[in-house]
Simulated scan of single mutants.
Amino acid sequence: MDKNQHATLRSDIIDNVSTTFKALADPTRIRILYLLSEEECAVSHIAEILELSQSAVSHQLSLLRNLRLVKYRREANTLYYSCDDDHVISLLKQAISHVDCD
């Protein structure tokens, strides 16, 4: 590669990476993703464990689902959520490990 040539990223990749980091920049979404990395949960369980309203949890899960970071399965009338992107969970856990290195 000539010294005047530089490797660059396509704009769609840059946009997607930026969107992923924005999703991880919200404390509530971090808490939800971390919980879901540990266990599959219904909205009511997430709300109870994180002491949030079911409405707030549903709103965040909708955003995370649209970004394909979480997925759900239906069992009767209950939706059970789990992580849908191991790469993002790995990134989240690396960030947690980075700041929690006492």
Rank of each mutant, 00 (worst) to 15 (best):
Q5Y: 10
Q5A: 07
Q5L: 11
A7S: 11
T8A: 09
L9C: 02
L9D: 00
R10P: 15
R10G: 09
S11D: 15
S11K: 14
D12S: 14
D12P: 05
I14L: 05
D15F: 07
D15L: 09
N16E: 15
N16S: 15
T19P: 07
T19L: 08
T20G: 04
T20A: 00
T20F: 01
T20H: 02
F21N: 01
F21S: 01
A23V: 08
L24M: 13
L24H: 02
A25R: 11
D26F: 04
D26Y: 00
P27Y: 00
R29M: 08
R29S: 04
R29C: 09
I30M: 04
I30H: 07
I30A: 07
R31D: 05
L33T: 09
L35Q: 07
L35W: 03
L35G: 03
L36I: 01
S37G: 08
E39N: 14
E40C: 09
E40N: 06
C41F: 12
A42M: 05
S44N: 06
H45S: 07
I46M: 03
I46G: 04
A47M: 02
E48M: 04
E48Y: 04
E48L: 06
E48T: 06
I49D: 05
L50I: 08
L52D: 07
S53H: 07
S53G: 14
Q54L: 12
S55P: 01
V57D: 01
H59S: 15
H59T: 11
Q60H: 15
Q60T: 00
L61W: 00
S62H: 00
L63W: 01
L63E: 09
L63T: 04
R65P: 02
R65H: 14
R65E: 06
L67Y: 05
L69P: 01
K71N: 13
Y72F: 15
R73P: 02
E75H: 12
A76H: 10
N77R: 08
T78A: 03
T78W: 01
L79H: 13
L79G: 03
Y81E: 03
Y81H: 01
Y81R: 04
Y81F: 15
S82H: 10
S82D: 10
C83G: 10
D84R: 06
D86P: 09
H87D: 13
V88C: 11
V88E: 02
S90M: 06
L91W: 10
L91K: 00
L91E: 06
L91V: 14
L92W: 04
L92T: 10
L92G: 07
K93W: 10
Q94V: 12
A95K: 04
A95Y: 08
A95W: 08
I96R: 14
S97G: 13
S97H: 09
H98T: 14
V99P: 06
C101R: 14
D102P: 09
D102Y: 12
D102Q: 15
